[in-house]
Amino acid sequence: MEVRTIKVFTTVDNINLHTQVVDMSMTYGQQFGPTYLDGADVTKIKPHNSHEGKTFYVLPNDDTLRVEAFEYYHTTDPSFLGRYMSALNHTKKWKYPQVNGLTSIKWADNNCYLATALLTLQQIELKFNPPALQDAYYRARAGEAANFCALILAYCNKTVGELGDVRETMSYLFQHANLDSCKRVLNVVCKTCGQQQTTLKGVEAVMYMGTLSYEQFKKGVQIPCTCGKQATKYLVQQESPFVMMSAPPAQYELKHGTFTCASEYTGNYQCGHYKHITSKETLYCIDGALLTKSSEYKGPITDVFYKENSYTTTIK
């Protein structure tokens, strides 16, 4: 009895394709271990004539594949690729409408935090270190965002349907971005203890939790000093293409032309909904596939993004 075979390709990165001759009487799992086709788990399936010449994702289970996976995804987590594939199996079914010149995501599976993050990423200057993220990001900007969303979920250790947080998501993504040249110098002034300067680099240099107003941050924000008295913390120097200011959701007025974009969060910790506000020729609110415009805006804002380049204080 002759062994019926077909020729397929296996890959971990969709760049390096490895030619395989597979036995049609055995499952993919018996031949390769966990195997995925377009995100779908085909591990328990036997090869079919229609699979001839198709590319299958496999887990990096030998040295060659491990090197290829690390170079593309910059992670050695053995569960990463499987999590990416199972997320992709959902995100490829989502709709990605162009809204006001940006790629958004039609609401499904509690994905409003991903839509808000995706919209924000198209408006701030950011370059990702893992080629996987950078490639998928370019495709997302062009309207094909399924891979990018699935990668975000995998890097953030999230599953489809789980509630997510924009600030946490951005923080994970910033860790995989090139923020080497970003720098922030802060000064804390206390009447009792004097003053202390701190220099922050990388992710810490672009994120701040405690106030939404970048102007206020430049002037000074009140913080408790270690001595128990009130101290003032203010920005001395900022070198970065953008800054992200966050605070627990509270009524906040966004003035046209003073910011790049913002995240609105309605609801409580267990259950809520994100919308995205962007400042173009007027203010726009993007909620999944829905767009509304207004000249002014007041609502429960939790993150505001500002364009920056270089700032030095005039406070002496």
Rank of each mutant, 00 (worst) to 15 (best):
Y96K: 06
M24F: 10
K106G: 09
G143R: 01
Y234G: 01
A146R: 02
K298D: 09
K280Q: 14
V22Q: 08
L17R: 13
Y311Q: 09
G210S: 08
K218P: 02
E281F: 03
L37H: 13
D63Q: 07
T116W: 02
G164L: 00
T192Y: 10
G288D: 06
K293V: 11
V22A: 13
T116N: 09
T312G: 08
Q230I: 14
K46G: 11
G267L: 11
A150W: 03
N100S: 13
A289R: 04
D41F: 07
A117E: 04
Y214M: 01
N61I: 12
T192M: 07
A262V: 03
K183S: 08
G53I: 08
K92Y: 11
D41M: 12
Q175N: 08
I286Y: 05
R167G: 05
L283Y: 01
T64I: 11
T169E: 02
T116K: 09
K275R: 15
T226R: 13
Q30T: 12
L102E: 05
T11G: 12
I6N: 01
M24S: 12
I301M: 06
A247E: 07
L126P: 07
G29A: 09
C149M: 12
Y297Q: 03
I105V: 11
P60G: 06
K44H: 12
Q216G: 05
L114K: 00
Y84E: 05
T211Y: 04
V166E: 03
L81R: 05
K106F: 10
Q238T: 01
V166M: 07
N309P: 13
V99K: 09
S171N: 13
L254I: 01
T292A: 07
N309G: 12
G220C: 01
Q195S: 15
G228W: 02
T64P: 11
S50Q: 14
H18M: 11
V8F: 02
N110V: 03
A247C: 15
P130L: 04
G272E: 00
Q20G: 11
F70G: 05
G39P: 04
N157V: 05
F305V: 00
N89W: 12
M244N: 05
L126Y: 00
I286C: 04
A154N: 03
S263E: 01
P34R: 13
R66M: 13
D23W: 08
P130I: 05
Y252F: 09
Y155G: 00
